[in-house]
Simulated assay, not measured.
Amino acid sequence: MAGPFLWKAAALVEKHRTGLLAVSCAGLFGANLFYHVFPEQTFKLWYQCWTKGQPAELSEKLRSLFHDVLGDVGVKSVNCYQPFAAFGFHPVSAGIPWLPAGSLVGIPANFNSTAEDRQGIVNRVVVINGKEVDWESKQGLALKEALMFSPEAQKFAIAREIVYLQSNSPAVYAAVPPACLAGTCLSGVAIKQLLGLYSGPRVFRGIYNITIAAIGLVGYFLAYDAVSHALDYRSDRKAATISKDYARGGVEFYDKILSRNRTLRALLGKQGEKIYAPSGNLFPRYWFRLKHAPYTSRRDLIFNILRVP
């Protein structure tokens, strides 16, 4: 019973393939861009830091730092970028500045910490492998040091998020899935016509369609990762070229991330060895995917910028 229904469905798709492709591409683009269009109702709820059952407020120190970075980056419409207190250990961002909702940049509590006052770190409970981190232990001290950034490193980390948003990177990301879908479908149809498969056996067409779909999926993964790497490098480069201080802050920022990951690798034991490389880079979650550029190469990129007179 299912066989005739599937063939009728395939015939219907074949008949209206252009319209279905257009709707599918538009839907994919909208779905990937949704939380950037409504960051306040989606992204912020996910990343908001909470304390005592209430959303944490960003300190005046970090608000002032954020506005200093906006000025250094050269942002004219400062009201399009709003900071908030985020959980985690490094800044996050979402939104499209020129849309009504604007953009949000989440700044973590450890950015409040200084060499004299580390309350943004030691007053937080961090549980790893079911055990609370002892901040006075050897590994706790190493983690505490890795989570404390100089003002220059903090500025770089915030600046790269602002530059990322300013460059419309979310829209570029969102365009990758529909572009790959359209490319796969159009090239698949063209090759099918070239090989004369439309007049061939249904079994051959079915095998061909499955093969093209698999190739398209792999192509999407590779294209998405390539775009991700390019955008990472572009954001780092633009933030590091603001000034020498920003470049030095960028080198420190990635050095501290690598140090943090090496410490987490030790604290997590066997699980940490699967997540983090000895260098501090992240291992790919899947054998052929690396969603973000390695931290070592990003640090080296900024180091090379710093060496340019």
Rank of each mutant, 00 (worst) to 15 (best):
I305G: 02
S64T: 15
I215P: 05
A213N: 00
I96P: 01
S24W: 06
E57T: 12
V203Q: 11
Y286C: 04
S228Q: 06
A182H: 02
A174I: 13
F89Q: 11
K44I: 13
L258Y: 12
K270E: 15
L62M: 12
L258C: 03
A22N: 11
S137E: 01
G30C: 06
G219N: 03
G3C: 08
V172T: 15
S243G: 14
L70R: 01
G250Q: 06
F5W: 15
I215W: 08
A26C: 12
K256G: 11
G196D: 15
A56C: 10
L65W: 04
L33M: 03
C80K: 14
A10C: 02
V218T: 15
H67G: 01
P177M: 00
D255M: 09
N79R: 09
K244A: 11
V73M: 04
A247N: 12
G102W: 08
Q193G: 12
A293F: 11
L6D: 13
F253S: 05
R17H: 10
G216E: 10
S93K: 04
R118N: 11
A2F: 15
F5K: 14
L99G: 01
A153T: 10
G71F: 02
V37H: 01
A31Q: 14
S64G: 06
N79S: 15
Q139F: 08
D245N: 10
L104S: 05
N79V: 14
Y254R: 08
A11E: 14
K138D: 07
L306M: 13
I215L: 07
P284E: 13
A240V: 07
L197C: 05
T211V: 14
E136I: 02
K52Q: 14
L45G: 13
I128P: 04
E60M: 00
L222Q: 13
F84V: 07
P294S: 13
E136Y: 09
I302T: 07
T263L: 00
Y208F: 11
L186Q: 07
E252G: 01
I212C: 05
Q139S: 08
R202H: 02
K238R: 08
G250E: 12
D134V: 05
K61A: 12
S259I: 02
P4L: 10
F221D: 05
Q119N: 09
L99S: 00
V92N: 04
D232C: 06
A85E: 14
G250A: 15
K15I: 14
K256A: 15
F38V: 06
K192Q: 15
T184W: 01
D232Y: 02
G53C: 05
P284G: 00
S169E: 13
V126Q: 00
D255C: 05
P178C: 14
D232Q: 02
V122Q: 12
A56P: 04
L290C: 09
G30S: 00
A226C: 10
A159C: 08
P91W: 11
T241C: 04
P55R: 00
W98G: 00
G71Q: 09
E57A: 07
H292A: 09
F283D: 00
M1F: 08
A26I: 15
C25H: 08
A94L: 06
L290Y: 09
L104R: 07
E145V: 12
V75E: 13
